[in-house]
Amino acid sequence: MPFSEISVGSFKDATSKEAIRQGFAEFISALIFVFAGQGSGMAFRKLTKSETPRVEGVIAIALAHSLALVVAVAVSKNISGGHVNPAVTLGAFVGGHKNLSLIKLIIYWIGQFLGSVIACLLLKLATNEMAIRPFVLAENYTVGSAVVLEIVMTFGLVYTVYATAIDPQRQSNDTIAPIAIGFIVGANILAGGAFSGASMNPR
């Protein structure tokens, strides 16, 4: 998108009811997604009493993330577009999505980051202070390889969102979009979870 077409927005945009409503929708969606996704990994560790990644664990985590994202996108799609992921919001902004100014991008990011933080705090409270594990690289897996993997997976996610939900040249499908977006995240976790954790996300 040419720089001349970038909309910065104004203070009035940041304080409008629409912007606050959209930011709150992203907050709730991120909370739903992170709580279920991160919680699935914690539940698996609790049930198996194992800290070692296992095949069935990756499958369970991929399924939980996929299902949670379908719901997270569906409940906020008609309010904020159902981005959930800061990388998706950035992609929509760069792609020239209508009504997404720089100010709104920041509001979306604030909602998404706060939703993620609150989800993790709630998980610690609900699991009696069980540790929340960060993403780590697999043994003997290089940072360079992880960067390539994450770029490819994030591109797949952002492209899927853009093609099914926010492309101004196409009519958005409220049924297919959440399912397709959930599926690509689940598939990416199955493909990359054992290597980089399949973050696809700057959070």
Rank of each mutant, 00 (worst) to 15 (best):
I106T: 09
V70N: 00
E56G: 14
F35A: 01
L63P: 13
D174K: 15
E56C: 12
V34H: 02
L149V: 14
S7T: 12
I20L: 15
M200K: 04
V73H: 03
E26Q: 02
M200Q: 12
N201W: 06
S50P: 00
F195D: 12
L149C: 12
G96Q: 09
R203I: 14
H83L: 10
G182Y: 05
P134A: 09
P86D: 12
K104S: 06
F113L: 15
L157I: 09
T15F: 14
L190V: 13
F24D: 02
R133W: 07
N128R: 11
A19Y: 15
S116G: 15
L122R: 06
I151W: 09
W109F: 04
V71Y: 01
A74Y: 12
I166K: 00
S7A: 13
S76T: 08
V136R: 08
K98N: 08
F113V: 15
I179R: 00
S80H: 02
Y159T: 07
R133G: 00
E26N: 02
G144L: 00
G193M: 06
L149Y: 02
L69G: 05
K17E: 10
K46T: 10
G41S: 03
I103Q: 03
G193E: 06
G91L: 08
S145P: 10
A14C: 08
Y159H: 08
I189H: 10
V117E: 07
M1H: 12
A25C: 11
V136Y: 06
R170S: 10
F35V: 00
M153Q: 12
P134V: 06
Q38V: 15
N201G: 07
I59D: 12
Q38R: 09
L157F: 14
I151M: 12
K98I: 03
S29R: 01
L47D: 09
F27V: 02
V152Y: 11
A165T: 06
G37M: 07
G115H: 10
H97T: 14
L90H: 04
K49E: 14
V58S: 10
G111I: 01
P86L: 01
V143H: 10
A165I: 07
A64M: 07
T52Y: 03
P134M: 07
F27P: 01
A119E: 01
V117G: 02
F3Y: 06
I184R: 13
S4E: 13
A131S: 09
I179E: 03
I184S: 07
R170E: 03
I176V: 15
G96E: 08
F155Q: 06
P178T: 04
V152M: 11
R170V: 08
L157T: 08
G144N: 04
V58N: 09
S29W: 07
G182F: 06
F93L: 13
A87E: 07
Q38L: 13
V136T: 13
G91V: 09
R54V: 15
P134L: 07
G91S: 06
L69F: 05
V71F: 08
I118L: 15
V158Q: 09
V73P: 01
I189N: 09
K46V: 04
L121V: 11
G96S: 11
P2N: 14
N85Y: 00
C120T: 10
V58D: 03
A14P: 01
A187P: 11
L63E: 11
I118N: 01
K124R: 14
T15Q: 07
A30I: 00
E51A: 14
V84I: 13
L121Y: 10
Y159F: 14
S40F: 02
T48D: 10
T127A: 04
K104F: 08
